[in-house]
Computed example of a mutant assay.
Amino acid sequence: GRSRAGTFWADRTPVHEAARRGEIRQLQQLIESGACVNALTYDSITPLHEASLRGQAQCVKMLLDAGAQVDARNIDGSTPLCDACASGSVECVRLLLAHGAKVNPPLYTASPLHEACMNGSSECVQLLIDVGANLEAHDCHFGTPLHVACARQHLRCAKLLLQAGAQVNAAKLHETALHHAAKARCAALVRLLVEFGADVNARDNRGRKPSDYSGNGGAAARCFQFYERTPLSLAQLCRLAVRRAAGQRGQHKISKLQIPPRLIRFLSYD
């Protein structure tokens, strides 16, 4: 990498290059000849960051086995797990978690769960939820992971977060996920959020309701017209009340209630 012009490339090592390109034999030879697996670029990027961001699972494994720091921070504060989630590589995410990567690293930036939601990788989202990712992790720019999933119109990711107990009315500058769904004019997202208890009358910092952003006509606008004049059914209100009583930590207990399976499916939005 040293022959390339510009400072960005000047400090990259052959280990960085091999990890980025997924050159397994080359990487093996470098490790065996004693090359440093924790070498940093000017931006504090390690070879493990490179391999994770490109979804190079075999390289990730080799680097970890050779002593790569699993929670190394780059200049933005991102860890390799953040990068693996950004790439949507479930295999890399599994490897990093198995080597003790923190699912909730103390970041000022987007968490691994934010990154998975941005990428729309529902499998990564579920994996992170299963190992205890903070559903309310707050990024000053993006808000919560639910805000990200809705802004990017990743319906499956949004549903997984909500089923796991994410706060549907969490606000970022008073803007809720429903405001994002309205701006995206995505009727399916609007329906999903309202079924999980989203407030159609929530006001953002400009005093506007979600429907103010849904345009004239179109399926999303029609959804809002219906929801603004039609209250939720008693069955839906009961479902929300039960889930609220269970709390985020108790969502998994709903499946163990001594009630008919059909009711459990209803309560779990299954």
Rank of each mutant, 00 (worst) to 15 (best):
E115I: 00
L189C: 12
F226D: 15
L95S: 13
V190T: 14
F196C: 03
L127R: 09
T46W: 11
S121Q: 04
I75M: 01
Y269G: 00
Q248A: 15
Y213C: 03
P106W: 00
N201D: 15
N216D: 13
G197S: 11
N205C: 15
R21K: 14
E23S: 12
K253N: 09
A18N: 01
L135F: 09
F224K: 04
R20Y: 14
C157F: 06
A84I: 03
C238E: 12
C36T: 09
R244G: 13
H16W: 04
T7I: 04
E123G: 05
L267I: 04
A66Q: 01
Y213D: 04
T46H: 12
Y227C: 03
G165E: 11
N169P: 08
P80E: 02
P260M: 06
T79M: 07
C59E: 01
A182H: 03
R191W: 07
Y269P: 07
L127C: 10
R208L: 15
G6T: 09
Y42I: 09
K256Q: 15
R203Y: 06
Q56Y: 04
L95I: 02
G120S: 09
N38K: 00
I254V: 13
Q248E: 14
A166E: 08
L107R: 11
G218K: 05
A158Y: 02
P261S: 14
N104L: 12
Q251F: 00
Q236D: 14
A39P: 02
E175D: 08
L81H: 03
Q58N: 13
T7D: 11
C186K: 06
G165R: 00
L189W: 02
Q258H: 12
G77R: 06
Q251Y: 03
C140W: 08
H179G: 01
L81I: 00
A241L: 13
A246K: 06
Q167E: 14
V60M: 09
T46K: 07
A133T: 11
H99S: 14
R20D: 15
P261H: 12
K61M: 01
I24E: 13
N134L: 12
C82H: 15
P210Q: 07
Q153K: 06
N169E: 07
